[in-house]
């Protein structure tokens, strides 16, 4: 993955929060819950930023505060140097909610046309952009079908298309891979990276840690409304106490193992594991599907397995 462009000036700061706090209160103004507590955060232009945390940690609250869907109890949230409550900032934002909250009586074309109008886009631009996005999200075959006939994954795809209708500079994705099958998930992750490569900033929150790890440049981990960790993914997940070694064209023999153990121990370490690396299930699934596409037909036979 390409490295994010480092921030150099204040103009490169897309999102900034200072002491951002959200407290939910009851009708009488009594405190019910602290959803977010004094969050200080800066997101730079051209990076993929991930918000992580368990349910109720304040991820979605942060996104809603940035979008002006909620008002802060105290503190400040700025997007493109404008207050979060200022709707003009939305001109440069694309938002994909966790569920694709779209009008199900519209078809894909009408949906994108509707959201394009909300950006006051001229008709010709709307048509051109809609066509391009429908192609991008792979819904050309279903563009005339109303959204109520769509599967959850298709709705997520058209949801992403509406988020990109204005060619936004900042894309906010709430659980972007929710409802997508493994191929859809891979497609989504590749698209997120592509958006970053085009110079856009992506802010995403997800429960799927592998997704976040795969695409995010930096992450923030929230728990009970408090910021617990903030930094580059590679740095945060790096285990400085261990050393990984990969090699090719070697046979797993006891002699090799003994030699390696001796070298490691000579340098003060100890050998923990020795064997072939495993691929991810995602890679396996991707490979099987691609092979199936290339050579259709049944491949699995009971005799091929041990069970």
């Amino acid at each position: 993955m390409a490295e994010p462009t480092p921030a150099k000036t204040k103009n490169d700061i897309v999102v900034e929060t200072r002491n951002l706090t959200k407290i939910y209160r009851d009708f009488w103004g009594r405190k019910k819950a602290v959803a977010l507590n004094a969050l200080d955060l800066t997101i730079k232009r051209g990076e993929i930023f991930g918000l992580l945390g368990p349910n109720g940690s304040g991820k979605t609250t942060t996104i809603k505060l940035l979008l002006g869907l909620l008002f802060p109890t105290s503190g400040e949230a700025k997007v493109f140097d404008r207050p979060a409550a200022d709707v003009r900032k939305n001109e440069k934002i694309g938002y994909l909610p966790e569920e694709s909250y779209l009008y199900r009586f519209l078809n894909a074309e009408e949906t994108l046309d509707f959201y394009g109008r909300l950006f006051d886009m001229p008709g010709e631009v709307r048509r051109e952009r809609s066509e391009k996005l429908i192609k991008l999200v792979g819904l050309e075959h279903a563009k005339k079908r109303t959204l109520r006939e769509y599967s959850k994954g298709m709705r997520q795809r058209i949801g992403l298309a509406q988020a990109l209708i204005n060619d936004p500079e900042l894309v906010i994705l709430d659980e972007p891979t929710s409802g997508l099958d493994p191929l859809g998930t891979i497609w989504m992750k590749e698209l997120i990276v592509k958006l970053r490569d085009e110079g856009k900033t992506v802010l995403m929150c997800s429960h799927r840690l592998d997704d976040v790890q795969d695409v995010c440049d930096r992450i923030a981990i929230l728990f009970n409304g408090d910021l617990q960790e903030l930094g580059e993914v590679n740095r945060l997940v790096e285990d400085a106490r261990r050393v990984e070694l990969k090699a090719t064209n070697l046979q797993l023999t006891e002699a090799l193992k003994a030699d390696l153990k001796a070298v490691i121990e000579k340098h003060g370490g100890s050998l923990e594991t020795f064997g072939h690396p495993t691929t991810t299930l995602e890679d396996l699934f991707k490979r099987v599907v691609e092979e199936s596409k290339a050579r259709p037909g049944r491949r699995y036979l009971p005799s091929n397995t041990n069970n």
Binding site: L67, G68, L69, N90, L118, F119
Partner: peptide
Amino acid sequence: KSLTIHTIVTKPVE
């Protein structure tokens, strides 16, 4: 209720 308004107010809509 259906949260469709979220995709509207997050556009530059007064």
